[in-house]
Design a protein around this nucleic acid. Structure first.
Lengths: 256, 256
DNA sequence: TTCAATTAGTGTCAAATAAACACTAACTAG
DNA sequence: CTAGTTAGTGTTTATTTGACACTAATTGAA
């Protein structure tokens, strides 16, 4: 018989929010200025956006709320990817002092359910926010030391993103509604950190059926204007399949 | 500023344990007999094995403990796949009455982190256990109504398994150390619920390099004895890649 | 108004992979 | 020694991938 300890940790949700701008994959982080009584300067403190899960919320709702509070956006791509529950994940000294200022029970263990969000960063209007708390986009290669185990959570999200992007067509979530083939390719190259062949990329994307070509083209660019495409959500939802290992006829290869 | 409710739900872990025997994929479930005062018979109650996460454990450790207590096995394939946290997930009347008998705080919300385990069911020695609690293997197509939201958790695990099996070579975890090509194929056919071509299957598996052919063959079978193979763990861990969409040279196809 | 600069857009061929398909080999039980 | 059963094996065709280089359309500067 298992004699289980009766444990009531806190449960939170943290969001790894990816955006794409200036050919760079970025993360939306919270920056806090915390007065340091000793140095009499402000300590800067970065963290993933997150919050405790409320009584009447399920996990998805909690993540959506965090996202909506931060960006004002609803209906964006959001996927739970991992729970983190090391007993010591909130035990670092510098994290503790911040927790003391915001939690009734700062010593409690916190188990967090991490979500990954993909958003068109052009849609986000970062509320300037209070002096002590603001949201900033930071390139994924310049992520500073984050609070708690948030660096680990981010690394895990990034790994996951790189996998998922090869299996499901979700990259589109990071682009505006209308985008060019080059933008799409650039996005994939950024995520996968490798160059892709232009002609092969176009062929595969077009044959996959997830793109709807528009008649509209770029205007005002000082080169041949590119055609815009939209993402065919229905096509994808109805199949829920890989676009990457897709046959030309829409079938999926595994075994014969 | 977000005013968060201070919430302390319970956190548990539940394990969806897959096994494979007699050409059937099975789940290891807990069966409890609960005396019903009204009918004066025992109510039978099935659930995924699980337990509250203890103070000093991380989530993986909790899942390993549940697994070890039930099967006596360590070091088996275990993967966290999803957290479930609906506020009402433990609110069904029949679940509540059982919770009252085992929990100090039976009304508390319980958030569970679900794990999927794949084991060679031949290794498991099901402890006969007490009259009121035993573990049973049940074919996945005959899963009864389970406690809480465990049916949903199981469905989710099964979906996940079907995806993962196409991407990573984990099916082996369900077989004995030495297995024949036919056993392996039968396993894949069972999981994917579709027939595979024998020659193409063999070629792909052999070319993938995840199999180590042994000289040993079956004995005592009344037909041509099949060669045994072992799973090449190192090969897989070093790549961590798909075997299914594997090129002959071990590369992985995405874009050129 | 022409030219330079820039990015968009297009097709083919060779190599790799996938899919379809049927017979012989080895063993046991009767 | 025969019937029954499962193991094991190759080839051919269709599809997909990967490599590769030029023309088209636009703007801005000369």
């Amino acid at each position: 018989m298992s004699q289980s300890a009766s444990v009531n940790p806190h449960v939170s949700t943290d969001c790894v929010i990816f955006g794409f701008s200036q050919e760079t994959l970025r993360l939306l982080l919270i920056r806090r200025s915390i007065p340091n009584k000793i140095t009499e300067t402000d300590d800067i403190h970065y963290a993933l956006p997150g919050d405790l899960v409320r009584d009447d919320e399920n996990l998805d709702e909690a993540a959506k709320r965090v996202l909506a509070e931060l960006t004002g956006l609803k209906g964006i791509y959001l996927e739970q990817f991992q729970a983190f529950g090391d007993p010591l994940r909130v035990a670092k000294q510098k994290d503790r002092s911040w927790l003391k200022s915001v939690r009734q029970d700062p010593d409690a263990r916190v188990i967090t359910v991490a979500y990954m969000a993909l958003i068109d960063s052009g849609k986000v209007n970062l509320h300037p926010g209070s002096f002590s708390k603001e949201a900033v986009w930071i390139p994924i290669h310049e992520i500073p030391e984050l609070a708690f185990d948030h660096n680990e959570i981010f690394e895990s999200a990034l790994r996951q993103l790189r996998e998922i992007v090869q299996i499901r067509p979700i990259g589109f979530e990071l682009l505006p509604e209308k985008f060019t083939m080059s933008q799409l390719q650039s996005l994939y190259e950024t995520i996968l950190e490798r160059d892709l062949d232009k002609r092969n990329f176009r062929r595969k994307m077009l044959n996959s059926g997830v793109l709807i070509p528009l008649t509209e083209k770029q205007i005002g660019v000082s080169n041949k204007p590119a055609r815009y495409y939209m993402f065919n959500r229905e096509m994808v939802e109805s199949r829920g399949q890989s676009i990457m290992n897709l046959r030309m006829d829409g079938s999926f290869s595994l075994f014969s």
